[in-house]
Nucleic acid binder design. Sequence first.
DNA 1: ACGACTTTGTGACGAAGTCACCGAAGTCTC
DNA 2: GAGACTTCGGTGACTTCGTCACAAAGTCGT
Lengths: 230, 230
Amino acid sequence: MQETTEKTDAGWIDHFAGLSALPDDIRADLVKGSQIISVPAGTQVFEPGQSADRLLLLLQGTVRVQQRSDTGREVFLFRVHAGESCVLTTACMLAFEDYSADGIAETDVTAVAIPRATFDDLVARSAVFREFVFTAYSRRITDLFTLIDDIVFQRMDVRLASRLLELAGPDGVVHATHAVLGTELGTAREVISRTLSEFQRRGWVQQSRGEVRIVGRAGLEQLVRSAGEG
Amino acid sequence: MQETTEKTDAGWIDHFAGLSALPDDIRADLVKGSQIISVPAGTQVFEPGQSADRLLLLLQGTVRVQQRSDTGREVFLFRVHAGESCVLTTACMLAFEDYSADGIAETDVTAVAIPRATFDDLVARSAVFREFVFTAYSRRITDLFTLIDDIVFQRMDVRLASRLLELAGPDGVVHATHAVLGTELGTAREVISRTLSEFQRRGWVQQSRGEVRIVGRAGLEQLVRSAGEG
DNA sequence: ACGACTTTGTGACGAAGTCACCGAAGTCTC
DNA sequence: GAGACTTCGGTGACTTCGTCACAAAGTCGT
């Protein structure tokens, strides 16, 4: 396994489009100054009040980032996929501030951990690396803007339809309870239940405990489209 | 105006706490590589689809950042005050991506414009400057999280009370129409009207065309506090 | 099969957004 | 200063969504 590690080390950089242009010396330092870590599904990758000391680049799995409000309720903020980095961590790492949101591994996760020292060194030395980092930021901020826009202006049924289409596997099944879908969209479970009932009545989905099966994709897509135009 | 510029140049850096620790050589390059600009109130400082080529540091005035949705409605995102920088610009500048939000000068604005070349150079060379930039990012992202949290979980009356207290001048007067307050909070004008009527009934505010006078500050503060605890 | 837990369904209600419309207050023009 | 026009604020009816309370299933361990 150790033998293959070096090969893996050399290889993971190319999972990230923005890093493939790194010159060889920088690339070598990046590989040398970072390590690959794995955590099982359900692990709290980071949490509020914890100071960040490393940047995570996801190789496999997804991390859900959410915020816990004063009242104990939760809002889903965004999801970090393989091939992406967690700006939140980055932000706090560089600003020497604490996190203000939770990060939870939704699946088993493999990631590259870049310690602050390595990170800072690379940001100083490599324009390519800088651009990689700032692009990640930019993308995430845009996501947040879109999220706010959705929350404020979009109807729940449209948002749910859209999210179901996103979350569905190739077989068209979404594995999630109503409560989970509720926190995903920042709404109450009851609203999800009622909306899904309506979708079922229209023949767009079939429900069973803990999962939703999309059987009328076209209907959901039509709903999303009709709202997208305004 | 040009004569005084050089004197101003030397001084503005100390308006920004995070920059005061800059070493002299960096400081000189920053001053040399940037320029001071002024725009009148109401100017659109930036807009979606326009590529950013400089970072703005506000010396005087405020800039309102908002997003226009597909449907033509607007959501207020945050406000950039004197002594702060506009991360949004930064994000897009560095990522070579376009803006996705509007920036509007609410007052006459004076700002330092740092062109991309200077910015990139400074990020590479100065750890202090890096920290300044990333701290600005971090703060703004945290703001967005708080905003989302508020939108999802906080009652409108609490949010309005809180915003009135923020916007009020030293004389306790807020100059804004109901419609403006509506977009500030991402809600409808009618909701503002009704809520303000209720505040007036309770003796907390007095209304006249285009302005709201706070006459019972304690009541508003009490409302905000009671909700803040959860 | 029993109890404990989780998931889902439902009705009632309050808070907030939407729509349609009105009148009142400023502004402009002549 | 008399209309014409625009902006601003008020109101009622209705819809959507969040909240609360509680019931009915489904699942699991023992």
